[in-house]
Amino acid sequence: MIPAPTMEAATTAATTAALAAHDLVAGYAGRRVLDGVSLSLAKGTVLCLIGHNGAGKSTLMRLLFGLHTPSAGHVTLDGATIRPSPAAMARAGVAYVPEGRGVFPGLTVAETFALAAWSAGLGGGEEAARTDEVLEILPVLKTVWRRRAGQLSGGQQQMVSIGRALLARPSILLLDEPSIGLAPKLFQDLLAPVRALQQARGMSILLVEQNVHEAFAVADAVAVMKSGRVIFEGVPADLADHATLMELF
């Protein structure tokens, strides 16, 4: 059973933004994708970002992690304006799980974790302790520890990708379409331990997702993007009516 969102957590964190976009404008090859996007991820909450394909959700995630540069606007982390870059965001406790998982198919799960630990500057006992911690959160990985990532199912690969991110003990986690290629039950099995960890640690999660029903079950807040803009912000209950949700797409 996926833990339900708590009103206390949402209310307490609502006044402080862990990560926020302010009037971001961006595009590719002269085509504008984001048209003045502002969005705040409150501390200690899960914000689910939804919208049609091409709305700009993944571009926003890339900007927040520093993989793409806006032509206007800025990003704040804990209220301070920053210029995101992957290295700087990782040092600040931000982890990013991209759409499509991004695992190295020729590496075993063990080798993938070792590479992530090396990248995070972990060594010796600290690497072992954090690896054990992640394997307790995602125990399925123990059963495929010596298998190559390319031989794993889609759900297992997604667990590898998320587990690799959790190894850094991030305070902010950016998850881009983790349900792609997964059955609803597998997606539940993936989200449940992540939600439990988020609640235990007060982590902030920005979740881009098309599987609205399952994502809303773990979200404290929801935002809707359309044609490069955020057109709605509220809580999942606001969009419980299917007709209301469809009007926003």
Rank of each mutant, 00 (worst) to 15 (best):
A4N: 04
P5E: 01
M7S: 01
T12E: 14
T12P: 05
T15E: 13
A17K: 07
A21R: 08
A21H: 10
D23V: 05
Y28M: 06
D35M: 07
G36F: 09
V46N: 11
I50L: 11
G56V: 00
G56T: 01
G56L: 07
P70E: 04
S71C: 08
G73Y: 03
T76S: 14
A80L: 02
T81F: 00
R91T: 10
A92L: 03
A92M: 10
G93A: 08
V109E: 05
V109C: 00
A110Y: 05
F113E: 03
A114R: 14
A117V: 03
A117E: 01
A117N: 02
S119L: 07
A120R: 09
T131P: 00
E136P: 01
I137E: 07
V140M: 14
L141K: 04
V144K: 13
R146D: 15
R146S: 14
G154P: 02
Q156P: 09
I162T: 12
R169T: 06
L173T: 07
D176R: 09
D176Y: 06
I180M: 15
L182N: 14
L190D: 06
V194S: 02
V194C: 03
A196E: 14
R201Q: 15
I205Q: 04
E209A: 06
N211A: 12
H213P: 00
H213G: 06
F216R: 15
A217W: 08
A219I: 12
V222Y: 04
R229L: 05
R229G: 01
I231G: 01
F232N: 03
E233R: 15
P236N: 13
A240Y: 07
H242M: 10
T244R: 15
